[in-house]
């Protein structure tokens, strides 16, 4: 059959879980639709930097974009519920929560008024801090100038409470800023630290307790509808199938990134269980007034927390 629709998928990174997902979608959707839906993958921000790609999905110039959940918050504040630390115990637990049918019900309405819909959710890695001065205890964070993975209060306030000076900057600028010690460290994931060779600049990485980088593949709702019932069902089913990359590829990718860090002389420090509990408590206190101001986010967060408890 002749091509009737194009599905452009945009991702900020190259050769990682997102490109693997694109590959699966291309094989699945093109195969089952008999070529009526053509799938084109655009890694490395080829279709534009993240804020624009997100708008692109909202307005339909791009059909699907993949990004850390934080980039959707400016469009749909409710996504912030997924950014609060303390929801998941570990990645496997988090993936179980995200794959749960009840979670999908909660999330399916997110972004509806903005014309977008989460089609695929995953967890890249724990959020870690890479720093010149090793972070072994919460006290080590005090006084450090740290790049945060997002500019919103959810990212800033917990660090501020621990006595750090959080500031937001792009990933491209964080590395040179760390090298010349404009900042003392940066929060992101080990995948990012390994890919960008942060080990050239600093060796210490510490995973923050119960904090994870959740990302989403977001689709344009109107485009999904425009496919017609048959093709829409194919795309949705293939997206659900492609979710298998979370376990099959994502965890292996995380292992690879961890090994890359270690073989290049990098080290991991671990925060003790007692300190971890205290960290989650501090985060709760810091985040409570922020959630109080956003009842919808609080509602989503509470619902997700209940599911997380059930699946522990």
């Amino acid at each position: 059959a002749a091509q009737q629709f194009t599905m452009k998928i945009s991702s900020p990174s190259v050769s990682d879980i997102t490109t693997e997902w694109m590959r699966l979608m291309k094989a699945g959707v093109e195969g089952r639709s008999g070529g009526r839906v053509k799938v084109e993958g655009y890694p490395a921000n080829q279709l534009g930097q993240l804020p624009r790609a997100v708008e692109g999905v909202a307005l339909g110039t791009i059909e699907v974009t993949i990004s850390a959940i934080g980039f959707y918050v400016g469009l749909e504040p409710r996504f912030e519920a997924l950014e609060v630390p303390g929801l998941f115990d570990d990645i496997r637990h988090g993936l179980r929560v995200l794959a749960d049918l009840e979670t999908k019900k909660v999330l399916s309405t997110l972004g509806a008024s903005k014309g977008i819909e989460p089609m695929w959710l995953g967890i890249q890695a724990p959020i870690s801090v890479v720093s010149h001065k090793p972070v072994r205890t919460l006290a080590d964070i005090r006084g450090q100038k740290l790049r945060t993975p997002g500019p919103t209060p959810i990212h800033m306030e917990p660090l501020r409470r621990l006595g750090a000076s959080p500031l937001s900057m792009g990933l491209g600028e964080a590395l040179p800023a760390m090298q010349n010690r404009t900042i003392d460290g940066a929060l992101a994931t080990i995948n990012i630290f390994s890919v960008f060779k942060y080990f050239d600049v600093a060796k210490s990485v510490t995973h923050m307790p119960q904090a994870f980088l959740v990302f989403a593949g977001m689709a344009n709702r109107a485009w999904l509808k425009s496919l017609g019932p048959e093709l829409e069902a194919i795309v949705r089913e293939e997206a659900a199938k492609a979710e298998s990359v979370n376990m099959a590829f994502g965890l292996a990718d995380l292992d690879r990134a961890t090994k890359t860090w270690e073989t290049n002389g990098g080290v991991f420090h671990v925060i003790s269980p007692a300190e971890s509990v205290r960290y989650v408590e501090e985060v709760r206190v810091a985040v409570a007034p922020i959630l109080a101001k956003q009842p919808r986010v609080k509602e989503d967060y509470d619902a997700l927390l209940a599911i997380a408890k059930r699946l522990r």
Binding site: A58, G74, K114, G150
Partner: peptide
């Protein structure tokens, strides 16, 4: 048109939360 869409989506900037 784009500007009006941003207005109706109520999209805000990341750091300061100003309407985009």
């Amino acid at each position: 048109r784009y500007t009006m869409q941003m207005h109706s989506l109520a999209r805000t900037s990341d750091a300061l939360g100003i309407p985009v």
